[in-house]
Protein backbone atom coordinates (compact mmCIF):
# COMPACT_ATOMS: atom_id res chain seq x y z
CA UNK A 1 0.00 0.00 0.00
CA UNK A 2 1.42 3.38 -0.99
CA UNK A 3 1.16 6.22 1.44
CA UNK A 4 0.51 9.74 0.29
CA UNK A 5 2.33 12.24 2.43
CA UNK A 6 0.53 15.57 2.47
CA UNK A 7 2.38 18.59 3.87
CA UNK A 8 0.02 21.42 4.77
CA UNK A 9 0.23 24.91 6.24
CA UNK A 10 -1.87 28.09 6.20
CA UNK A 11 -1.62 31.68 7.42
CA UNK A 12 2.05 32.12 6.69
CA UNK A 13 1.28 35.89 6.39
CA UNK A 14 4.57 36.73 4.74
CA UNK A 15 5.79 40.29 4.55
CA UNK A 16 9.16 41.92 3.98
CA UNK A 17 10.11 41.32 7.65
CA UNK A 18 9.94 37.55 7.15
CA UNK A 19 11.36 37.30 3.66
CA UNK A 20 13.65 34.28 3.27
CA UNK A 21 12.89 32.90 6.73
CA UNK A 22 10.03 30.58 5.89
CA UNK A 23 11.91 29.19 2.90
CA UNK A 24 14.66 27.92 5.20
CA UNK A 25 12.12 25.69 6.92
CA UNK A 26 11.11 24.08 3.63
CA UNK A 27 14.53 22.56 3.05
CA UNK A 28 14.35 18.77 2.63
CA UNK A 29 10.56 18.86 2.35
CA UNK A 30 10.78 16.34 -0.51
CA UNK A 31 12.01 13.74 1.98
CA UNK A 32 9.06 14.31 4.24
CA UNK A 33 6.17 14.90 1.85
CA UNK A 34 4.90 14.33 -1.69
CA UNK A 35 2.94 17.55 -2.04
CA UNK A 36 2.62 20.86 -0.18
CA UNK A 37 -0.81 22.44 0.34
CA UNK A 38 -1.01 26.09 1.43
CA UNK A 39 -4.38 27.18 2.82
CA UNK A 40 -4.47 30.93 2.27
CA UNK A 41 -3.50 34.13 4.10
CA UNK A 42 -0.21 33.98 2.31
CA UNK A 43 0.31 37.72 2.79
CA UNK A 44 -0.49 40.35 5.41
CA UNK A 45 -2.02 43.12 3.30
CA UNK A 46 -2.63 41.36 0.00
CA UNK A 47 -0.38 43.67 -1.99
CA UNK A 48 1.29 42.69 -5.26
CA UNK A 49 4.69 43.18 -3.57
CA UNK A 50 3.83 40.71 -0.84
CA UNK A 51 2.54 38.33 -3.52
CA UNK A 52 6.01 38.50 -5.04
CA UNK A 53 7.60 37.65 -1.66
CA UNK A 54 5.30 34.62 -1.34
CA UNK A 55 6.17 33.46 -4.85
CA UNK A 56 9.91 33.74 -4.09
CA UNK A 57 9.45 31.84 -0.87
CA UNK A 58 7.46 28.94 -2.38
CA UNK A 59 8.86 28.64 -5.89
CA UNK A 60 11.11 25.92 -7.23
CA UNK A 61 10.42 23.30 -4.54
CA UNK A 62 11.05 19.71 -5.65
CA UNK A 63 7.41 18.76 -4.87
CA UNK A 64 4.18 20.26 -6.28
CA UNK A 65 2.80 23.25 -4.37
CA UNK A 66 -0.95 23.89 -4.42
CA UNK A 67 -2.39 27.00 -2.76
CA UNK A 68 -5.59 28.97 -2.22
CA UNK A 69 -5.87 32.60 -1.17
CA UNK A 70 -7.23 33.84 2.17
CA UNK A 71 -9.09 36.99 3.24
CA UNK A 72 -5.83 38.93 3.82
CA UNK A 73 -4.80 38.25 0.22
CA UNK A 74 -7.91 40.17 -0.95
CA UNK A 75 -7.33 43.24 1.22
CA UNK A 76 -5.62 45.42 -1.42
CA UNK A 77 -7.75 44.31 -4.40
CA UNK A 78 -4.63 42.72 -5.89
CA UNK A 79 -5.90 39.14 -5.58
CA UNK A 80 -5.87 38.49 -9.37
CA UNK A 81 -2.35 39.87 -9.57
CA UNK A 82 -1.19 37.65 -6.69
CA UNK A 83 -2.76 34.58 -8.31
CA UNK A 84 -0.94 35.35 -11.56
CA UNK A 85 2.41 35.91 -9.80
CA UNK A 86 2.09 32.59 -7.98
CA UNK A 87 1.10 30.73 -11.14
CA UNK A 88 4.03 32.24 -13.01
CA UNK A 89 6.24 30.85 -10.25
CA UNK A 90 4.91 27.34 -10.88
CA UNK A 91 2.49 27.23 -7.95
CA UNK A 92 -0.99 25.87 -8.64
CA UNK A 93 -3.66 28.20 -7.26
CA UNK A 94 -7.12 26.71 -6.81
CA UNK A 95 -9.94 29.19 -7.25
CA UNK A 96 -13.14 27.19 -6.74
CA UNK A 97 -11.90 24.43 -9.00
CA UNK A 98 -9.94 21.19 -8.78
CA UNK A 99 -6.87 19.47 -10.11
CA UNK A 100 -5.33 16.00 -10.03
CA UNK A 101 -1.75 14.95 -9.62
CA UNK A 102 -0.38 11.45 -9.67
CA UNK A 103 1.84 10.61 -6.72
CA UNK A 104 3.46 7.15 -6.52
CA UNK A 105 0.84 5.90 -8.96
CA UNK A 106 -2.05 7.24 -6.87
CA UNK A 107 -4.32 9.88 -8.40
CA UNK A 108 -4.76 12.60 -5.82
CA UNK A 109 -7.57 15.09 -6.46
CA UNK A 110 -7.49 18.47 -4.74
CA UNK A 111 -10.49 20.78 -4.85
CA UNK A 112 -11.22 24.10 -3.22
CA UNK A 113 -10.60 27.81 -2.96
CA UNK A 114 -10.84 30.57 -0.41
CA UNK A 115 -14.25 29.55 1.00
CA UNK A 116 -16.18 32.01 3.15
CA UNK A 117 -18.18 32.42 6.36
CA UNK A 118 -21.80 32.31 7.42
CA UNK A 119 -21.72 30.10 10.48
CA UNK A 120 -22.73 26.60 11.37
CA UNK A 121 -25.99 24.69 11.16
CA UNK A 122 -28.59 25.99 13.60
CA UNK A 123 -26.54 29.14 14.31
CA UNK A 124 -25.97 30.56 10.88
CA UNK A 125 -27.05 33.45 8.72
CA UNK A 126 -29.53 32.79 5.93
CA UNK A 127 -30.37 34.48 2.64
CA UNK A 128 -33.05 36.66 4.17
CA UNK A 129 -33.57 40.37 4.77
CA UNK A 130 -31.23 43.13 3.69
CA UNK A 131 -29.33 42.78 0.42
CA UNK A 132 -26.02 42.94 2.36
CA UNK A 133 -26.98 39.87 4.41
CA UNK A 134 -28.21 38.00 1.37
CA UNK A 135 -25.03 38.79 -0.56
CA UNK A 136 -22.86 37.53 2.32
CA UNK A 137 -24.66 34.20 2.54
CA UNK A 138 -25.04 33.83 -1.23
CA UNK A 139 -21.27 34.20 -1.69
CA UNK A 140 -20.68 31.11 0.49
CA UNK A 141 -23.47 29.12 -1.16
CA UNK A 142 -22.12 29.83 -4.63
CA UNK A 143 -18.62 28.82 -3.56
CA UNK A 144 -19.90 25.54 -2.08
CA UNK A 145 -21.84 24.85 -5.31
CA UNK A 146 -18.72 25.39 -7.40
CA UNK A 147 -16.75 23.03 -5.15
CA UNK A 148 -19.39 20.34 -5.55
CA UNK A 149 -19.24 20.62 -9.32
CA UNK A 150 -15.44 20.57 -9.28
CA UNK A 151 -15.38 17.48 -7.05
CA UNK A 152 -17.99 15.69 -9.16
CA UNK A 153 -15.75 16.08 -12.21
CA UNK A 154 -12.70 14.68 -10.43
CA UNK A 155 -11.41 11.26 -11.36
CA UNK A 156 -9.19 10.44 -8.40
CA UNK A 157 -8.34 7.73 -5.89
CA UNK A 158 -8.10 10.20 -3.03
CA UNK A 159 -9.66 13.63 -2.64
CA UNK A 160 -8.63 16.53 -0.45
CA UNK A 161 -10.49 19.81 -0.04
CA UNK A 162 -8.22 22.84 0.43
CA UNK A 163 -9.82 25.99 1.85
CA UNK A 164 -9.02 29.04 3.91
CA UNK A 165 -12.28 29.13 5.87
CA UNK A 166 -13.36 26.31 8.17
CA UNK A 167 -16.11 23.77 7.46
CA UNK A 168 -16.72 22.93 11.14
CA UNK A 169 -16.77 24.44 14.63
CA UNK A 170 -14.41 21.95 16.27
CA UNK A 171 -11.29 23.44 14.73
CA UNK A 172 -12.36 26.94 15.87
CA UNK A 173 -12.31 26.04 19.58
CA UNK A 174 -10.23 28.72 21.29
CA UNK A 175 -11.67 31.50 19.11
CA UNK A 176 -14.48 33.63 20.60
CA UNK A 177 -17.79 31.94 19.62
CA UNK A 178 -19.19 35.35 18.61
CA UNK A 179 -16.93 35.41 15.57
CA UNK A 180 -17.55 31.83 14.36
CA UNK A 181 -19.80 33.08 11.52
CA UNK A 182 -16.78 34.96 10.14
CA UNK A 183 -14.52 31.95 10.40
CA UNK A 184 -16.39 29.41 8.35
CA UNK A 185 -19.56 27.81 7.11
CA UNK A 186 -21.20 24.41 7.36
CA UNK A 187 -21.97 24.70 3.62
CA UNK A 188 -18.30 23.90 2.97
CA UNK A 189 -18.57 20.71 5.06
CA UNK A 190 -21.82 19.78 3.32
CA UNK A 191 -20.11 20.00 -0.08
CA UNK A 192 -17.23 17.78 1.06
CA UNK A 193 -19.64 15.27 2.65
CA UNK A 194 -21.90 15.14 -0.41
CA UNK A 195 -19.09 14.48 -2.88
CA UNK A 196 -16.87 12.43 -0.60
CA UNK A 197 -13.43 13.57 0.51
CA UNK A 198 -10.63 12.02 2.54
CA UNK A 199 -9.37 15.17 4.20
CA UNK A 200 -10.37 18.83 4.56
CA UNK A 201 -7.52 21.29 5.10
CA UNK A 202 -8.14 24.88 6.22
CA UNK A 203 -6.60 27.79 8.10
CA UNK A 204 -7.87 31.25 9.15
CA UNK A 205 -8.59 30.37 12.80
CA UNK A 206 -5.24 31.33 14.36
CA UNK A 207 -6.45 30.58 17.88
CA UNK A 208 -8.31 27.42 16.95
CA UNK A 209 -7.43 23.72 17.18
CA UNK A 210 -5.86 21.37 14.69
CA UNK A 211 -8.30 18.45 14.66
CA UNK A 212 -11.95 18.21 13.69
CA UNK A 213 -14.36 16.13 11.66
CA UNK A 214 -17.34 16.97 9.43
CA UNK A 215 -20.84 15.64 10.20
CA UNK A 216 -20.26 13.12 7.39
CA UNK A 217 -16.96 11.91 8.87
CA UNK A 218 -14.39 13.75 6.75
CA UNK A 219 -11.29 14.52 8.81
CA UNK A 220 -10.65 18.25 9.15
CA UNK A 221 -7.27 19.81 9.97
CA UNK A 222 -6.71 23.48 10.78
CA UNK A 223 -3.14 24.09 9.70
CA UNK A 224 -2.89 27.81 10.57
CA UNK A 225 0.77 28.39 11.43
CA UNK A 226 0.04 29.64 14.97
CA UNK A 227 -1.96 26.43 15.57
CA UNK A 228 0.47 23.83 14.21
CA UNK A 229 3.53 25.86 15.36
CA UNK A 230 5.70 24.00 12.86
CA UNK A 231 6.67 24.99 9.33
CA UNK A 232 4.02 22.55 8.11
CA UNK A 233 2.09 19.50 9.27
CA UNK A 234 2.35 16.17 7.47
CA UNK A 235 -0.66 13.86 7.06
CA UNK A 236 -0.40 10.39 5.58
CA UNK A 237 -3.25 8.88 3.60
CA UNK A 238 -3.05 5.35 2.35
CA UNK A 239 -3.23 5.25 -1.42
CA UNK A 240 -6.05 2.73 -1.79
CA UNK A 241 -9.15 4.74 -2.68
CA UNK A 242 -12.53 4.24 -1.01
Amino acid sequence: MTDLRIAAVADIHLGSDLSGQYRKRLEDIEHRADVLLVGGDLTRHGTATEGRIVADELHGLPIPVIAVLGNHDYHSDADRKIVQTLRDAGITVLDDDAMTITVNGVRLGIAGGKGFGGGFAGKCASEFGEPETKAFVRHTREIADRWRRAMKDLDADRTIVLSHYSPVKETLMGEPPEIYPFLGSYLLAEAADAEGADLFIHGHAHAGMEQGVTPGGVRVRNVALPVIKHAYAVYCLDGEGQ
Binding site: I29, L199, H230, V234
Partner: peptide, 13 residues
Protein backbone atom coordinates in the same frame (compact mmCIF):
# COMPACT_ATOMS: atom_id res chain seq x y z
CA UNK B 1 7.02 35.65 19.57
CA UNK B 2 6.25 32.35 17.88
CA UNK B 3 9.14 30.67 16.27
CA UNK B 4 8.28 28.49 13.31
CA UNK B 5 9.76 25.15 14.23
CA UNK B 6 11.05 22.39 11.98
CA UNK B 7 8.25 20.10 10.79
CA UNK B 8 7.34 17.55 13.46
CA UNK B 9 5.91 14.03 13.48
CA UNK B 10 3.63 12.98 10.67
CA UNK B 11 0.06 11.89 11.41
CA UNK B 12 -1.39 8.76 9.80
CA UNK B 13 -5.05 9.24 8.93
Amino acid sequence: LVEVREPGEEEHL
